[in-house]
């Protein structure tokens, strides 16, 4: 059996909007095994981004539990959650959100510097990751010198910096044109084949089709799940996969 990296149980998230409670997520349970790639799809406002924030320990559920690698992220205090996000989870955002004042390599180094990795080690790993996402030659460019697709590749490299157990991506192709979006999907596919566990939230049908499993949400609940490419029981990660989680 594969290890269950993520186990969400009866997760609810309510928040008030203009005094009225909004039930953004209503009792979702979801398991994600190591090496899996889950795409969460659904109409706007169905709660998929809220769910992703909950899974990533950015937000806390009103009730329910979320265990990542056996640790209940729903009960962590802020400092622990922050630390966990740094080392346990990689985030990719729709709008890339690179630090405009830092170079591509420095952007990738940022989480490693925060995790107190020695300078030499983080410089080497940043180069390795940028080469992996196909930007080896552009390490010293600043975000404004890169195209949207290139910025998103840097953001992916940054997300993988501390070898997270889980890569979370919120509409990673949302800001990209069709061709660049296809390239991005190929990159995600390669990452997943190399062993990275991925959860994406998307409107992009092509991206959803590439995932192993598609979870359909409506009104804060899972309404359907489609298994597209089942995981083999044990696929060892290739030795060079930069995104592989540490054991």
């Amino acid at each position: 059996m594969r290890e269950i990296v993520l186990a969400a149980r009866d997760v609810r998230r309510d928040y008030p909007v203009a005094g009225e409670p909004v039930h953004a997520v209503r009792g979702i349970s979801l398991d994600v095994a190591a090496g899996d790639w889950v795409a969460i799809v659904g109409p706007s406002g169905c709660g998929k981004s809220t769910l992703l924030n909950l899974l990533g320990a950015i937000d806390r559920p009103t009730t329910g539990s979320i265990a990542i690698r056996g640790r209940d992220v729903a009960r962590m205090n802020d400092a622990d959650a922050t630390r966990f996000r740094l080392t346990g989870i990689g985030f990719v955002f729709q709008r890339f959100y690179l630090m405009p004042t830092l170079t591509a390599a420095e952007n990738v180094e940022l989480p490693m510097a925060e995790a107190k990795l020695p300078r030499a080690a983080r410089v080497a790993r940043a180069r390795e990751l940028l080469a992996y996402v196909g930007l080896g030659a552009r390490a010293d460019h600043r975000p404004y010198q890169l195209s949207g697709g290139e910025q998103q590749r840097v953001a992916i490299a940054r997300a993988l910096a501390n070898r997270p157990a889980l890569l979370l991506a919120d509409e990673p192709t949302g800001e990209l044109d069709a061709r660049t979006g296809t390239e991005m999907i190929a990159l995600f596919d390669r990452l997943n084949r190399d062993g990275t566990t991925i959860v994406t939230v998307t409107h992009d049908e092509e991206l959803a089709q590439a995932a192993r499993r598609v979870v359909h949400m409506r009104d804060g609940a899972i309404v359907d799940q489609v298994l597209r490419r089942p995981l083999a029981d044990a696929v060892p990660a290739p030795p060079h996969a930069p995104g592989t989680a540490q054991a």
Partner: peptide, 16 residues
């Protein structure tokens, strides 16, 4: 504010 939120999201501690 967006950059700061992202830094917090990727695990940069409050005090930093």
């Amino acid at each position: 504010i967006g950059e700061i939120a992202v830094m917090r999201a990727i695990g940069v501690a409050r005090w930093r």
